[in-house]
Write a protein that binds this DNA or RNA. Sequence first.
DNA 1: ATACTTAGTATGGAAAACGATACCATTATT
DNA 2: AATAATGGTATCGTTTTCCATACTAAGTAT
Lengths: 124, 124
Amino acid sequence: MENDTIIHNQGLTKPEKDDYSTNNCAVTNALKIMGGKWKMLLIKIIADDCVSRFGELKRKMDDIAQTTLTIQLRELERDGIICRKAYAESPPRVEYKLTEIGITLLPVIQVLTDWNDNYCRLTK
Amino acid sequence: MENDTIIHNQGLTKPEKDDYSTNNCAVTNALKIMGGKWKMLLIKIIADDCVSRFGELKRKMDDIAQTTLTIQLRELERDGIICRKAYAESPPRVEYKLTEIGITLLPVIQVLTDWNDNYCRLTK
DNA sequence: ATACTTAGTATGGAAAACGATACCATTATT
DNA sequence: AATAATGGTATCGTTTTCCATACTAAGTAT
């Protein structure tokens, strides 16, 4: 019973001191940028598409409100994860794609997807 | 402009059809279990501790409300991520630890931590 | 007797997230 | 002249999430 308390911690980086407060925890920090109901899904779709238009995203996430989609895109843009390119046409055309920093988030998406495919069913 | 649309998608598993709706997306599914403001942090702390007591968790996450902590722990328990062991003592003693399935979530935590350490600063 | 400890629960309220609806400008189409 | 398409914004309401406060039971220490 005592010996298995060591096993599952291998490979996890322990914090120097026990500081998990809001401003100092790596997990919390990362989630400030990519947390929430829609962000990771949005990042995944834009990655799959390479370049996405607004209406395309709206169609694929068919249960998101348009206002919510706009807000999420603005925040991802503000945080340097995606970039927005608007063309001076009519009707308007706007394209979204991942920035270089946004691309560095793909391993997070992938490991989450892998976990779902391999282990999530065991939780039921 | 066209050629760089391919690069960043390497290694990402594309969905068969463009189905990102609420019930069918792997990312969304995984986040149903470990999403939210506190879950991943909780999983990380319990992993660091190997075994955590309630008051210990409360102290380390000093800005979480006690009621919220209880709810998060109950949900993680319900979803098979942690297990709860209460001792018939007084004052009560309750211990939380990761289940085997909970342990499979650690790579998710790790990759999130790594991203924060390596790339998050670039978003500023 | 009183105070302290742990791991909660109960209640009420505030804040954040999210959604539905209506509206807009510009151009092309019918 | 009316309609449709795109990518929004503005407003308001709901739902979800979260927090603050008060309270509890049982044993231990003073």
